[in-house]
C-alpha cells in the first residue's frame, strides 16, 4: 500500500492477498458442511495453527512495534502487556480490565520516560 502504487493495484492486492485466502475457508465450510464435528482432529489442529499465527502477529506487534509505539521502550511494551495479562487473569478473564490495565501501564510508563 505504498504511495507509489497507482490506480487499481492496491484493490487488486486487497482482493488477492486479503479477501481470497481468507474467504476460501468460509466457502469450504458452506460446501462441506455435512459431517464435520467440532472435536474432529482436523478442526483441533487447524484451530491450534490459527491461534499460533495470531500469537505470532501479536508478538511481532509488541516486539517490533510500528510508528508511535516504537518510541516507547521495548521493556515497557512487554511489561505493559504482561501486567495487562496478569490483571486479566486476576479479574476472572475480564477483557476490559486487562486492556485497561495494560494501556494504563503503557501510558504511565511512557509519560515517565519522556520526563
Amino acid at each position: 500500500m505504498a504511495a507509489d502504487m497507482a490506480g487499481l493495484w492496491p484493490y487488486v492486492l486487497l482482493v488477492l492477498v486479503g479477501f481470497l485466502p481468507n474467504e476460501i475457508w468460509r466457502a469450504l465450510g458452506l460446501v462441506l458442511a455435512r459431517g464435520l464435528n467440532e472435536d474432529s482432529e482436523l478442526v483441533v489442529w487447524s484451530r491450534a495453527v490459527a491461534t499460533a499465527i495470531l500469537a505470532g502477529v501479536i508478538a511481532k506487534l509488541i516486539l517490533f512495534a510500528p510508528g508511535a509505539l516504537a518510541a516507547m521502550p521495548l521493556g515497557l511494551r512487554v511489561a505493559a502487556a504482561g501486567c495487562g495479562f496478569i490483571a486479566f487473569l486476576a479479574a476472572k478473564r475480564s477483557l476490559f480490565v486487562g486492556v485497561a490495565v495494560g494501556e494504563a501501564v503503557l501510558l504511565a510508563g511512557g509519560f515517565l520516560f519522556a520526563h
Binding site: 475457508w25 468460509r26 465450510g29 458442511a33 502477529v57
Partner: peptide, 16 residues
C-alpha cells in the same frame, strides 16, 4: 497471502 489464509482456517469449522 499464506499467513492470511492460515489465520482464516478457524472460519471453516465456525461456518460448519
Amino acid at each position: 497471502a499464506i499467513a492470511v489464509s492460515l489465520s482464516g482456517m478457524r472460519l471453516f469449522p465456525m461456518v460448519v
